[in-house]
Structures are given as C-alpha cells and as structure tokens.
Amino acid sequence: MHRRDFMTGAAAGLAGLLVAAATVPAMAAAKELRVLTWEGYADEPWVKAFEARTGAKVKITYTGSVDEIFAKMTASKGEDFDVIAIETSSYKRLTQEKLIQPVDLSKIPNAANLLPAFRDVSAIMFDDKPYAVPFAWGSIPLIYDKAVFAQPPASWNVLWDEQYKGRIIAMDDANNAIVTTALLLGYKDPFNLTDAQFAEIKAKLLDQKRFVSTYYAGFDDGVSIFAQGGVDLMMSMGEPQAPMLRKKGVDVGLTIPQEGAIGWIDCWAISAGARDPELAHAWIDAMLEKQVGTYISEKTGYGNTTNAEANAAIGLTYADKLVFLQAPESFARRIDLWNEIKATPVE
C-alpha cells in the first residue's frame, strides 16, 4: 500500500526530474548525497523517491555503532558525509568537536509535521540553535509476564521487590541503569548528578543486584533468557523485545511506570563538512514526510516523529512520559560506577 504510494511518488518525481534535466542538465548530473546511518533508516522507497525528485545520487554508508560514527566523522572532520542519523545523547560531543552544523528549519517545511513531543527537544539545541531534527524514537520500558501480573506494575520499585528475587533480568548498560534509577528516586536532572546522588544510586543498584538473576548483553540475549522461563520482569532494551517474546510464546506486557522512563530519539543532522547543505536540508525534509514515518513504525516497531496514528497502531502512545537522553556529566564516571556494581559480590 505505502510502497505503492512511494512508487507513484517516485514516478511523479521521475517525470519532474526529466523536466528538470531538460532545463538544467549539468547540475543534476553532479549532485551526490553521502548518508551515514543505521540500517532501516535509508530504505529503498524513500531513497529512490528522493533521488528522483532531486536528481542527486544517494550514497549510503551503514554503521553498527556510535563509536563507528564518531570514528568516521572525526577522521575527516565530517568531510566524508553530508547527513548522519544519531541518538540525542551524542550531540554534545558532536557539537564540541564541531562535526555538525546547525539546521536551518526554514529550509525544512516538513518540520511542521513534527508531533508536539518532538518540536522542542533540548538535547539537540545548542546556543539556541537546533542541530538536528528528530526522526525515530523508542524507550527503555519495563516488560512483564502477564501470567504473573494481571495489571501492569505501576512503579519501577517492582524491580526491588523481594518477591521477584531471581526472577528479574536487567540490561547490562551503565547509563540506562543509572538514569532509570535516578528517575525512580525522583531526581530532577538525571543527566547531571551530584556526588550525593551518585552515592545514593550506587546503594540502590547494589540493593537491586540481590534480586537480579542476570544482566543481559543485547536484544536477542534478553529475549532468549526471558523465553527460557523463570523470569517475570525485565528492564527492557526497547520496544521490539515485546513482539519478539510474544513470537516465542511468552505472553508479555510492556509498560512505562509512573516515574517515567528513558526515551531515545535518533535525529538527522548535517555534517560540518557537507558539500551541499541545500541538498542535505532537502534530505531531512524528505525524511519528515508522513509516509516515511509510517514506514519506519510499521517496519521497525519504533516510534516515528510525524504520524501519530502509526505510532498508536503499534502502541507507542507515551512519548510525553519519556525523559529523552542527554549527554551525562561524565560517561567515564558512570561506567566506573556500573563496573563497581557488577564487580561487587552479593550474598
């Protein structure tokens, strides 16, 4: 259905291109847009439509990790790419190292499509200038076994409940563990913790360790352990784990407890070394088409930032309850804390 929409769009674009090519043939031939992104964020339907509409060639480089994005961007001060997609907590470092440039929203008319929760994301604003445009989002939710819980657990405190000792699994990730605990403890700013708050979080997480059966390492690992049985609760890595578990025959529910939960947003940004900033803006504008957002939600199971119905269709209606990730005061300190917790033996 939507694919067909894209195809019609592509055909229309192609016709437009033919006209454009007849008038300005030299310009159309030289343009190239170099995209650095995650798999699934530059799929054929909209890449083809974009190429047809602008006459540019899109060259996509897929990345497997944030590290890789930084390595590729720093290697050439951003000269090798025009646009990148990366998660909100990386923007502090990206702007510090001057790897990206501000986005001119007047060149992105589709920014009007953005849902309210994504119009004013502080993590991507620096010096009052937006440096990126939100594209896809998700959360770090709580997943529970419906056979054990008739009602979804109301609070993250359930992960500290003696009753579920040894029946809880949590993801092995320093920042997510610390921020979620900070939310439970009601801290105003979970990204800039004081020494006293660090100490309190450490005590709290050590207290939880007695109840945690294991810290799992990835999406599939968490699903596989949960599906093996003996697990009631999981601090999840993200929404797709719920359908994965149901597919394995475990009837699970997913909830955002009353304290809120971590949210992440992958945003498009323009590299400092972009060859053709106009074209880069045009790409971001195209990414904010509602069809693209719909496709993202239907295909990946993540939230999109433009089509509320498509979000609702997969149950992602809670963007306003999320605290979107920002760069913390010190990743190194958080990693050290988490390593300490993992290294401390408990009963």
Binding site: V66, D67, F70, A174, N175, F331, A332, I335, N339, A343
Partner: peptide, 13 residues
Amino acid sequence: GRAIWSQFGMAFN
C-alpha cells in the same frame, strides 16, 4: 574482558 569492553562505545575512554 568485559571491563575493557566497557571503556569503549559510549564511555569513549
């Protein structure tokens, strides 16, 4: 090994 691993990625140490 996991402690070494943890210094890469987001930690960027």
